[in-house]
């Protein structure tokens, strides 16, 4: 057992690229877990923006794809642990869909590591910090989304 701690925040500043990460999280587990991280003053990188839904079951695959089409460098979907869904089984159904999204991403040449689904409960503040840090680091390594790059190229033509 390690004490909930702070996570290493990558260097930031002018000229350093910051990823844009869209988070879509459920109200009952992950949003509450993210709030708990706040209560515990757990420090993690500020590159994620959250949209709250009642259940991950609400998340249409197209929401994720829309985020990528809009130029998100990464997307994080987070809900309750299996068996803990406030609405019994919404997270199972979401997870199924998200596998499909990952396959679709691979087939269109978008690295599927840009997209992740995690399970963070309302009591896992420290885990939320770890998840966000890891997502940010992964996306950082992958660099800017090719969609943004291509859009820039097209605009320059």
């Amino acid at each position: 057992m390690s004490a909930p701690g702070n996570f290493e925040i990558p260097e930031r500043g002018p000229g350093i690229w910051q990823p844009k990460i869209q988070g879509i999280v459920c109200n009952w587990c992950s949003y509450a877990g993210a709030d708990l991280a706040g209560g515990g003053r757990i420090q993690y990188p500020p590159d994620i923006r959250i949209v709250r839904v009642m259940c991950t079951g609400r998340i249409d695959s197209l929401f994720v794809l829309k985020a990528f089409a809009d130029g998100a460098d990464g997307v994080l979907v987070s809900g309750c642990h299996f068996g803990d869904c406030h609405y019994l089984e919404g997270n199972y159904k979401a997870a199924k869909r998200m596998f499909m999204v990952k396959r679709l991403m691979k087939s269109i040449g978008l690295d599927d590591r840009r997209f992740r689904m995690t399970f963070v409960s309302a009591s896992e503040g420290a885990k939320w910090g770890a998840v966000v840090t890891d997502v940010v680091n992964t996306v950082r390594e992958l660099g800017p989304s090719p969609i943004t790059e291509i859009r820039k190229e097209l605009e320059n033509k």
Binding site: I9, R12, G38, R41, P46, D47, I50
Partner: peptide, 14 residues
Amino acid sequence: RDQNSWVHMHDRVG
């Protein structure tokens, strides 16, 4: 607050 100022206490710009 809970998902911003408290978790990025030392990153004013961020």
